[in-house]
Amino acid sequence: MEGSAGKSPALIWVVNLSAILLVVLWTIPTFGIFVSSFRDRDAISTSGWWTALSASEQSLVARAGAPDDAVPVGSEWVISGSVFDEGMSGEVTAFGSRAQDPTSNEPGEPLVLRDDGVLQVAEDGTYTITYAEQPEGRRGARIFYTTEVAPEITLDNYRTVLGSEGVAQSFLNSLTVSIPATIIPILIAAFAAYALAWMEFPGRVMLVALIVGLLVVPLQLSLIPLLKFYGVVGEAFGVSAKGYVGIWLAHTGFGLPLAVYLLRNYMAGLPREVIESARVDGATDFGIFMRIVLPLSFPALASFAIFQFLWTWNDLLIAKVFLGQSDNQMVLTGRLVELLGSRGGDWEILTTSAFITIIVPLIVFFSMQKYLVRGLLAGSVKGG
Rank of each mutant, 00 (worst) to 15 (best):
1 M>C: 03
6 G>K: 07
7 K>E: 15
12 I>V: 15
16 N>C: 11
16 N>K: 15
19 A>H: 02
21 L>W: 09
27 T>D: 11
30 T>N: 08
30 T>L: 14
32 G>T: 08
35 V>C: 05
37 S>Q: 08
46 T>I: 10
49 W>C: 02
49 W>E: 03
65 G>I: 07
79 I>K: 02
81 G>S: 07
86 E>Y: 14
92 V>W: 02
93 T>A: 08
94 A>M: 01
98 R>Q: 08
100 Q>N: 12
101 D>T: 00
103 T>I: 05
107 P>Y: 09
108 G>E: 09
113 L>K: 03
116 D>T: 13
122 A>V: 04
128 T>I: 11
129 I>Q: 02
130 T>W: 06
130 T>G: 00
134 Q>H: 06
144 F>E: 00
145 Y>H: 00
146 T>R: 12
147 T>V: 12
147 T>H: 01
151 P>N: 07
154 T>R: 11
156 D>M: 11
162 L>W: 03
163 G>T: 10
164 S>K: 00
169 Q>Y: 07
170 S>H: 05
174 S>H: 03
177 V>G: 02
183 I>F: 10
187 L>F: 09
191 F>D: 01
194 Y>N: 05
199 M>T: 12
201 F>V: 06
203 G>D: 07
206 M>A: 15
207 L>S: 04
208 V>M: 13
210 L>V: 11
212 V>D: 01
212 V>P: 01
214 L>M: 14
227 L>C: 03
230 Y>Q: 14
230 Y>K: 12
235 E>I: 09
235 E>C: 05
239 V>R: 11
243 G>W: 05
245 V>M: 11
246 G>P: 04
264 R>C: 10
264 R>E: 11
270 L>F: 01
270 L>H: 06
274 V>Q: 14
279 R>P: 05
286 F>A: 15
290 M>L: 15
308 Q>L: 09
308 Q>S: 08
312 T>D: 01
314 N>M: 04
318 I>D: 00
320 K>Q: 13
322 F>A: 08
323 L>Y: 00
323 L>R: 10
324 G>S: 07
325 Q>W: 04
326 S>V: 10
326 S>Y: 08
329 Q>M: 13
330 M>H: 03
331 V>M: 11
336 L>I: 11
337 V>N: 09
339 L>Q: 04
344 G>F: 07
345 G>A: 13
346 D>N: 15
346 D>T: 13
349 I>W: 04
352 T>E: 04
365 F>E: 03
369 Q>A: 14
370 K>E: 13
374 R>Q: 15
382 K>M: 12
